[in-house]
Design a protein around this nucleic acid. Structure first.
Length: 750
DNA sequence: GTAACCGAACTTTTT
DNA sequence: GTTCGGTTAC
């Protein structure tokens, strides 16, 4: 017995944390508020099970929400355990399922070299499907159909099940399209994200061998971010812990081939209903109730002490989330004394909001804060733009998470499509993507002919290409188009012969064989440099895949991982840069300084949630998640005007701001008159309604020189009435042309 | 039959 | 301010 390690393991943990760490066998529900040391509890529990209970590491399974979380968990467990953490099974549902399916998917007829399609590939294939069925993609939006299918899959509804309960015409369309879509996926040897989960459940349900193997292997199952699991994911967790598929049915005991009971029923789930923000991805909080039903007698541990944030930040968070109905009241508390007030700032427009953030970042950096300690959080990716612009102006380095995602960039997707095709020639979406990239004279008509011929011969499109390359004429493809197809086939086959080469060499050969670089340079000379840079980045990623251990090729492993990376996975602590990130992506992260921007009605809460109370509650949780990312300093900003969807919007301050007690908010000097003192609620109360504004006369005329606090000296180009105000167009020496409202922009004669 | 150009529609959040 | 699809020009 390693007696001396137990006190070490429990040192510095509070009572509920200890209870969770040392919980023995059975089912455990850990309700963990933000900053309550959740990861610490999980890693210490892993260490406890291995050290004290002598559980072999490979018999522990931990499911996380992102690859990054898995990586961190593994690293921290390893630090507690020493070297024997390598065999711990940790990963996202999707990554784990992909691994299991590659090994045992053959039991349900799945090829081990299947390709994983992302949303982009799916959309491409869906358009094809509609095309095949002679349906108008404008009448039936591919995306909407896919989202219907996805939702059904995540609800564990099979295509047959869906078809059986059709009620509307639209559903009938979906059912019809779904059938053909599935055929195409199958013949492409492809699966989508939802299939990874669903097929795993199918495998566990249909293959005795598979369920015995995995339920027999994992003695302890742990699921993190449980509030964001959807029904299929829950089914998987349940199957592994209980030894059979069928959560919700009578608990039973399964016997394996050796006569042992299957399913250890040791399962711990960690979650926080207040941080459930993925219902649109079919996540279902009811899983918490299901858990209680499927694992009767489960214990509950509540983690309520917050170690992350100051009292004012927690106060703000609580006052926002507390307004959600039907929530189990819970109090977070902190032992941290003092703490700065929250800073509230009202900007005139989104550009100025960015200026404010950049100025504050600069000030904080000068005061000794590391840039890596600072994050800017926003509701939608598009909102990063004005922040980025301001940071660039101030020469402040930043890291953008998400946005135009690396693996979504055209050049990266093109090259990956080539690699996938080399790996799996059935991959229809990839084939159609690159068949004419760079242009080879293979246009729409030729593609249609290829597909028609393939269909008539019961073959794939790739076979049709090979037929053309082989000189077959009954395809109706001749001349330049036929030459293009032949060129393509020769290139792919030549590269295929090199698929065991180190990936970077394969990439270089690929670029050479296809003339891709020249295509970039000639196609869009302006963007070429950028795109070549992302190819270099891709090469850098590939280097990590040289000679990986394991029984699959580097290429297979690379393609698998690349399909499953999330944006947050790229977040690193080390870089000396400000982090720009969406609220969704920020879940699970923490920063000493947090700026939450765009706290406006229509933005946060998002306009799409206005007519649905359920969604509005989720927006509130999103605000709660954002606020609770902050450790020391929190800035809540909103902008009077915002440029979005091609126009300028004037949004009132977010209702969430109004919920925060003024005692914890310090309003910052605002450019909006009358909004300088008091809380947000006060500020709004004293701001005169728009229509009562007195008519303002233009103080300056075109041609006059004026001075602006921020932009310096400029010349008035035009002045015109605008909603009781005067809007000027002014050209500044340094900042260029700006539109300014007289009542807000404090202009002075120059 | 293909490439280039131009207008329209749209942007919530993502494994 | 983007990307997609349709139309026109070659």
């Amino acid at each position: 017995m390693a007696v001396e390690t137990l006190p070490e393991l429990l040192e510095g943990l509070n009572e509920p944390q200890r209870a969770a760490v040392t919980f023995g066998d059975g089912a455990l529900l850990i309700l963990a508020g933000p900053g309550s040391g959740k990861t610490r509890v999980i890693t210490h529990r892993v260490a406890y099970l291995v050290r004290e209970r002598r559980v072999a590491p490979w018999r522990l399974l931990a499911v996380t929400f992102t690859n990054k979380a898995a990586k961190e968990m593994r690293a921290r467990s390893a630090a507690l355990l020493g070297e024997d953490a390598g065999s711990l099974a940790m990963g996202t549902f999707h990554a784990l399922c992909a691994r299991w399916l590659r090994i045992d998917g053959h039991t349900i007829g799945l090829d081990r070299n299947f390709t994983i399609y992302d949303a982009d590939d799916q959309e491409r294939l869906m358009k094809r499907t509609l095309d095949d069925l002679r349906m108008d993609p404008k009448k039936h939006s591919p995306r909407a159909i896919l989202s219907q299918i996805s939702h059904a899959k995540n609800e564990m509804l099979s295509r047959e099940g869906y078809a059986a309960r059709i009620q509307t015409y639209d559903q009938e369309v979906v059912a019809r399209v779904w059938a053909r879509y599935e055929e195409l996926m199958r013949s492409s040897s492809a699966v989508d994200f939802d299939d990874l989960l669903l097929k795993t459940v199918q495998m566990f349900a249909q293959s005795e061998e598979a369920i015995e193997k995995y339920a027999g292997r994992y003695q302890y199952v742990l699921v993190d971010e449980f509030q964001d699991t959807n029904p299929v994911q829950y089914q998987i967790a349940h199957a592994l812990a209980a030894g059979f598929v069928g959560a919700g049915s009578e608990p039973e005991r399964r016997i394996d081939a050796a006569g042992r009971r299957l399913g250890y029923r040791n399962i711990a789930v960690v979650g926080d209903p207040d941080q459930s923000i993925y219902s649109w991805r079919a996540a279902d909080i009811r899983n918490i109730a299901n858990f209680e039903a499927d694992f009767p007698g489960r214990e509950v541990v509540l983690l309520e002490q917050n170690y992350r944030s100051t009292a004012p930040i927690l106060m703000a968070a609580e006052s926002v989330i507390d307004r959600n109905p039907y929530r189990t009241p819970r109090r977070l508390w902190t032992a941290r004394p003092g703490g700065d007030m929250i800073t509230g700032y009202e900007a005139y427009n989104d550009e100025e909001e960015g200026e404010f953030v950049a100025n504050e970042v600069r000030r904080l950096a000068n005061a000794g804060r590391k840039l890596s300690a600072i994050a800017v959080l926003y509701r939608t990716n598009a909102m990063s733009r004005p922040i980025e612009d301001a940071l660039v102006r101030h020469r402040i380095p930043y890291r953008l998470i998400g946005g135009v995602r690396f693996y979504q960039r055209r050049e990266v997707k093109d090259l990956i499509a080539y690699l996938r095709l080399i790996h799996n020639r059935l991959d229809e979406a990839s084939l159609l993507r690159v068949l004419n990239v760079p242009g080879r004279g293979v246009g729409k008509t030729t593609v249609a002919r290829l597909r028609e011929w393939a269909a008539s011969m019961q073959l794939g499109t790739w076979d049709a290409c090979e037929a053309v390359a082989g000189g077959r004429l009954d395809t109706g493809i001749t001349g330049r188009s036929a030459a293009g197809v032949r060129e393509f086939v020769i290139a792919i086959n030549a590269l295929r012969a090199k698929r065991e080469l180190p990936l970077t060499m394969l990439l270089d050969d690929l670029l050479m064989a296809t003339g891709y670089l020249r295509y970039l340079r000639e196609g869009e000379p302006d963007a070429a440099e950028d795109r070549v840079e992302s190819i270099d980045q891709l090469r850098a990623v590939m280097i990590q895949y040289s000679d990986i251990a394991g029984d699959v090729s580097d290429l297979a492993q690379f393609l698998n991982d690349v399909a499953l990376v999330a944006d947050v996975d790229e977040v690193e602590g080390g870089a000396n840069a400000v982090t720009l990130i969406t609220l969704h992506n920020a879940k699970g992260l923490e920063y000493p300084v947090v700026f939450m921007v765009g706290l406006e009605e229509g933005v946060l809460p998002h306009i799409r949630s206005f007519d649905d109370p359920k969604q509005m509650e989720e927006e509130r949780r999103l605000a709660y998640v954002g606020i609770t990312r902050a450790e020391d300093l929190l800035y809540l900003t909103r902008s009077y005007r915002r440029f979005m969807m091609g126009g300028t919007m004037a949004n009132p301050p977010s209702r969430f701001l109004l919920d925060i007690p003024k005692e914890v908010v310090r309003p910052w000097g605002s450019t909006t008159p009358g909004l300088r003192a008091g809380s947000y609620a006060e500020a709004v109360a004293i701001a005169p309604p728009q229509e009562d504004l007195p008519e303002i006369e233009a103080e300056y005329g075109p041609g006059q020189l004026v001075r602006h606090v921020k932009f310096g000296v400029g010349i008035v180009v035009s002045a015109r009435a605008n909603g009781g105000d005067v809007e000027y167009q002014v050209t500044f020496e340094a900042a260029g042309v700006k539109r300014l409202l007289q009542s807000y922009a404090r202009l002075a004669p120059a």
